[in-house]
Design a protein around this nucleic acid. Structure first.
Lengths: 229, 229
DNA sequence: GCAACAGTTCGCTGCGCGGCGAAGGGTTTT
DNA sequence: AAAACCCTTCGCCGCGCAGCGAACTGTTGC
């Protein structure tokens, strides 16, 4: 019988501590063992064992620098597959409720290599409303517009094999936002031009004043209230 | 922290017996407890426990009829997610070698609701070569052609939200073949017109003589040798 | 009614593995 | 050199769970 080794992968994500770590890593940044241990609520030595397992499963890669070891997702395919999985995973209302109570956590965050969170969903909504994006064949097609450059997006000359603007289902909102190369360009540009900044210790991103102005000018987004993260 | 309940899903697919069952179910047919138990190499009572777990995870649904209980995948999303998972799962050469030795097993089979296996890959290859399909944006775009009707495919008037011809990565070959509504239409037509038949006890599909002729006429496929499954 | 069969429930055993404390490399700082 | 720090390895405990045999329910066929 034809059986891909689901079990290795499945075993890797079958544990609550490991899924916590993976969710943390979905931010796209590299994390140390200690950080991930704290995120999962276990001791460093336990986290170490988990990370080795994730490494063996090919989900995570490690890079040693000085006395620290930085862990990150093995690649975009891994992030993509985890997204897909999250899409069919049972939504647990308990978690969502408690994260709302925690106070607008993660209004804006990064999802491996692109923006996510309610604000990213709103941006996508605006792009669709303005006709800059068109949903077709389960993908986003980008229409030529001068606004794209203002968002830091350079449209490709000809369609590539991979989707340029891939829809990604937001974990919290269960709504689509822009991933793929376009999503990456937008995130890069937003970070580079200071529209958003990474929180120092908390997870997630922060929309700056210039960013708020830019999004309002370019997309007509009223995100003043959204930025109170 | 935002954590979808990966763990429930992960636990469901973390066991080798359960993954065996899931792979069996990926054929798209409904199976009894006993059949799945045999496929996984465990006793019926063990399989029963596994199936209840898969049911709770929302991956499988059961339907009682007479004294038999028929189990099937919960839906196309589940099949799709499992495909994605298989794409990043480590390919174990051991299994592939032993299945080759077993004698051309699964030259043609069904992958939930569409054709898969080497022959399906060859068909897709032919469709691409003839320009009936074009790969773009990570999806297949269908070009109008009279041949489509001969394959039982009715092209949609306008692009839908979901991809009409979705590429699906074959587990064994690691090559693309056609899934999505188009894939389903092709499988339905192939079964309806007697081009392929389901094996009585073995897994997989069988290409019939009329089917071989049809594929050669329509797509120029020389699949005489491929059909020896 | 009885036998045969599909499926489930129960109780038990044994392995696997998540978790931590203690101890052992390495690296950076004082 | 010593202290502080990050990470890992080792050994141990305890839970969870896969697996089976035995027994039970429900359905089909004689």
């Amino acid at each position: 019988m034809i059986t891909p080794r689901f079990d290795i992968l499945g075993q890797a994500i079958s544990d609550a501590s490991r899924t916590q770590m993976l969710c943390e890593l979905m931010e796209g940044r590299a994390y140390t063992n200690k950080e991930l241990a704290a995120a999962a609520g276990v001791t460093p030595q336990t986290a170490s064992a988990h990370l080795r397992l994730l490494q063996n499963a090919g989900l995570v890669v490690a890079e040693k620098r000085g006395r620290c070891v930085y862990h990150r997702l093995a690649g975009a395919e891994v992030a993509h597959a985890l997204e897909q999985l999250a899409a069919i995973a049972p939504a647990d209302s308990l978690h969502r409720a408690q994260q709302r109570k925690a106070g607008g956590l993660a209004q804006l965050r990064s999802c491996y290599d692109h923006l996510a969170g309610p604000l990213a969903v709103a941006m996508t909504r605006a792009l669709l409303d303005r006709g800059m994006l068109v949903e077709a064949h389960g993908a986003f097609r980008a229409e030529p517009a001068a606004q794209w450059l203002k968002l830091g997006v350079v449209l490709p000359e000809r369609p590539g094999r991979q989707p340029f603007a891939r829809p990604c289902l937001d974990w919290t909102e269960r709504k689509l936002h822009v991933a793929g190369p376009m999503g990456r360009q937008i995130l890069d540009h937003a970070l580079g031009s200071g529209w958003v900044k990474r929180h120092r210790h908390k997870r997630g991103l922060m929309l700056t004043a210039p960013g708020r102005v830019a999004l309002e000018q370019i997309l007509g987004l009223q995100c003043g209230t959204l930025a109170e993260a």
